[in-house]
């Protein structure tokens, strides 16, 4: 007579692994962190004198505690900010009120006119973070669109789809993301 060998019962194995699976699903998160990347300037050097920037090269954006915008001394709606910033940086008609350009040779692009324009952003302590990020977003969008335009014109693809690091560096050099944030001042308390 054949002796039957006892078999290992693996039926509950699936239950155990299901339990592990649910445990990991609960304790972990898949959220990829998205955001707007920025580089903070080093702390101000008291011995160094303020560099003189011509008035035509500065694009001032002020946000007050009621989340209102004041752009170049005039109130503006947030929806107009991107177009205004783009026009300022690009200065398409070489208007004397808009920033100067300097010609520079960039490998991969050749002779390019780089705008000397700087966007100066200043906010109140009472500004809401939501509004602040909206403004940052619009300004970033302005630069990204300009880069896209240049990239399409030169390389035929959008800036975000460029894969050649050399081209990416060239475009970044041709259109630097020049957003400067003013040193915080305490105006009128909280």
């Amino acid at each position: 007579m054949k002796r039957s060998r006892p078999e290992l019962n693996t039926g509950s194995m699936a239950d155990i692994s299901f339990l592990l699976l649910t445990f990991f699903l609960l304790t972990s998160s898949i959220d990829t962190d998205l955001g707007i990347l920025r580089r903070l300037p080093p702390p101000p050097d008291p011995t160094q004198e303020q560099a003189d920037i011509k008035k035509r090269n500065i694009f001032t954006v002020l946000v007050n505690k009621n989340d209102d915008l004041l752009v170049q001394g005039r109130p503006m709606d947030i929806s107009m900010l991107k177009a205004a910033a783009k026009e300022f940086i690009a200065n398409p008609y070489n208007s004397p009120d808009l920033p100067e350009k300097k010609s520079e040779y960039i490998p991969g692009l050749g002779e390019v006119e780089i705008s000397k324009g700087v966007i100066s952003l200043k906010n109140d302590r009472g500004t809401s973070y939501k509004m602040y990020l909206k403004v940052q977003n619009e300004l970033t969008a302005a630069f990204n669109e300009l880069r896209d335009e240049l990239s399409v014109q030169r390389f035929g693809v959008k800036f975000s789809q460029l894969s050649n690091q050399e081209y990416i560096d060239a475009i970044q050099k041709a259109i630097p993301m020049s957003i400067s944030e003013a040193e915080p001042e305490n105006v009128g308390g909280k």
């Binding site: 580089r39 080093p42 302590r125 500004t127 973070y129």
Partner: peptide, 22 residues
Amino acid sequence: RMGIVTDIKQELRQVGAFKINY
């Protein structure tokens, strides 16, 4: 409100942690 965020940013600048992400 931006006040507290500004304070954090100033502190990060002092420490030398310049790369930030909103």
